[in-house]
Design a binder for these strands. Structure first.
Length: 219
DNA sequence: ACATTATCCTGCACGC
DNA sequence: TGCGTGCAGGATAATG
């Protein structure tokens, strides 16, 4: 289309590539999507869903085995409908959000991108475990100390996550090894709680997805 | 107006 | 061995 890239930004899980002609390329990787810079766009594997070629033959490749990712061409000024990220959310404002959702289960509260951006199924579970909070109870019922712990845990977990994706591909078609996010509860059903509280991790369903938590220390 | 469920898609783990 | 089933993820549409 003859456009030039003028900037690259991120809002929550949305990647925003500013282009000339007053356009913005919005890319959401969802679960298995990934972006690569390749030296030659003539050689692409079968899981490549889209590619953007540069004048010299190199390009950006959007690879996504499960094809759940999304790409949209937006007008300049477009902003995805996501709330602030944890590290940009003052605790008092977080408290206001909590009080505004007195009946929403904690896990669903954390996963709503319109409220707070960045926490998916895995990190929401990890944040609640870190703060020793039940995934099914509303946060409004929790003590302030635990909410402070949760507030800090959200930012810390996402910071760690950005440095080492739990389910990232290091190469096209190959799961990353060794750099995975160190999960404490996610996908550990039946295993002993890492806090050695004597209980085993349970799995329940919330909003159609699996929630893992320790019934011993998350209350 | 709210809450739950289905849908998209593919690969893999599982049971028989 | 192979086949069928179900599940995983995020966001949204559709249904209750």
């Amino acid at each position: 289309m003859g456009a030039r890239i003028t900037g690259v930004r991120r809002a929550g899980k949305h990647i925003l590539i500013d282009l000339t002609a007053d356009k913005v390329l919005e890319i959401h990787l969802r679960m298995t999507g990934n972006l690569f810079v390749v030296p030659d766009v003539r050689f692409l594997n079968t899981t490549v869903r889209a590619w953007f070629g540069f004048e010299n033959g190199s390009g950006i490749v959007f690879e996504d085995p499960r094809a759940l990712g999304k790409i949209h061409l937006r007008d300049a000024g477009y902003l995805p409908d996501v709330g602030p990220e944890p590290d940009a959310l003052p605790f008092e404002r977080f408290l206001d959000m909590v009080r505004a959702a007195p009946r929403t289960p904690a896990k669903l509260f954390l996963m709503d991108q319109g409220r707070i951006a960045g926490l998916g199924n895995i990190y929401a579970a990890e944040a609640l475990f870190a703060a020793k909070l039940s995934p099914v109870k509303p946060l409004a019922a929790a003590k302030t100390a635990k909410l402070q712990a949760l507030h800090a845990a959200m930012a810390e977990i996402l910071q760690t996550a950005k440095a080492s994706a739990y389910l990232g591909y290091t190469d096209p078609g190959h799961f990353g090894e060794g750099e995975n996010y160190p999960v404490a509860v996610y996908d550990r059903e039946g295993e002993a709680c890492v806090r050695e509280c004597g209980r085993k991790i349970k799995r329940i369903r919330q909003g159609g997805r699996s929630t893992y938590y320790c019934p011993g220390c998350q209350r």
